[in-house]
Design a protein around this nucleic acid. Structure first.
Lengths: 226, 226
DNA sequence: ATTACTAGGGAGCGAGTAT
DNA sequence: TATACTCGCTCCCTAGTAA
């Protein structure tokens, strides 16, 4: 069973109380609650068990079911995602810690081939440098992974005599609820999903009085970037 | 596509902003976001459209997608259900208005065949009468439908010389956060899913000073009834 | 009364590809 | 670039039924 479907059944089991303790539930009853046949309820429990999302015990032909820690984590993530979707449609929210990058941001952000496109697509001349935010919370890392799957604004790569500069994608963003900038994803980024690269028309460390270790909140707009 | 799966895709589309306005989204981008192939994303959109959950327009080979009112309602219900599951695992919450029934509750609740079983299963002698609560909010009607699919305590029917008394199922409940009683479902109830029948060891109208039209809150326990 | 196996049909999936 | 068709394969569903 795919995870998308599994999560919905986990929520139903959670509703029945299987998140806190073992519950006694005949598959026929579960079937009615799930809206499937008794046989499917039985199979679904088996598959959730194989995915290690639930624990399942059969004592004298009565089933006892409880979510595992992995199952509980799955429910937590799912509920968080869904509420986030409801509260922030069209937007992604991140909270990260200011860290010092490798300094290559300044180099890239001052290449004329990029600057011209940023000006045209974002409407501002980016300060030559990026603010690197380390995402410590797993949920934000997951969200970063998700956001990166979207296209955003497409900044085309180019080549000079010396080397090749890859494509970059950008999403408009509001940093600390104050400054409008953007989040960028370099096609060949040296960072993983736990790092968020932010640009703005100003030097953010000065404008927002930031030092390494400070917590920064970023709201990214999915659609206004088109 | 079944509704269970459809709802999860609707939430994803909502996250992308399709709940508020038409969003421009290539199926390939949607595919990455959904975690499926481009072809599946295309098919999923078609099916959601056929289910009238989204509106979909193809202008010059670019897709514009937006949730319909029906789709939005589906997302609302789903999110409400999920948060409810998280906040009230193992419990169902209802809010209803006191109405006067047809008086048959008193008749049934005083049949010895029922009373003995209630005493044994619930641990109290029910006051001979039921409090009827009319559920005006659709969500509570939906929840009532769901709860009724569960088994709860099984009070067996019986027959006298005159007639047959059907099975009844009961769930322990807390009324107005004060009095412990139960919600009962008569096998052959004359009421639909918009009515909740409540019993208790005391006359609830006196004990809680209730009159027709008063709002009453009931918390039903799924598992403690076993 | 249970749970869960098997079998058959149908729904869902992605690769290839037409447009 | 797009979207979305066909095709073959897999997964998922329910009915029947064994244990």
């Amino acid at each position: 069973m795919n995870l998308r479907l599994a999560r919905t059944y986990l929520v139903d089991l959670y509703k029945l109380g299987a998140g806190e303790k073992y519950i006694k539930v005949p598959t026929s009853e579960l079937a009615a609650f799930f809206g499937v046949s008794q046989q499917s309820a039985s199979r679904i429990l088996q598959e959730l068990f194989e995915m290690e999302l639930i624990d399942k015990r059969n004592v004298d032909r009565t089933l006892w079911v409880r979510l595992t820690d992995k199952g509980l984590a799955e429910v937590d993530d799912y509920i968080r995602y869904i509420n986030d979707a409801y509260e922030r449609p069209g937007r992604f929210f991140f909270r990260g810690v200011v860290v010092t990058g490798l300094g290559e941001g300044a180099y890239y952000m001052s290449r004329k081939g990029y600057v011209i496109q940023f000006e045209r697509l974002l409407g501002f001349t980016p300060y030559p440098g990026t603010l690197n935010l380390k995402l410590n919370e797993p949920y934000y890392v997951y969200q970063n992974r998700l956001l990166r799957k979207l296209r955003g604004l497409h900044i085309k790569g180019f080549r000079t005599k010396e080397r090749v500069f890859g494509d970059v994608r950008a999403f408009r963003a509001l940093i600390q609820s104050k400054i409008e900038g953007a989040v960028i994803y370099a096609e060949r980024s040296i960072y993983g999903f736990d790092m968020l690269e932010v640009i703005a028309p100003v030097y953010l460390r000065d404008a927002l009085k930031l030092r390494d270790g400070d917590v920064v909140e970023v709201e990214v707009y999915i659609n206004e970037s088109r």
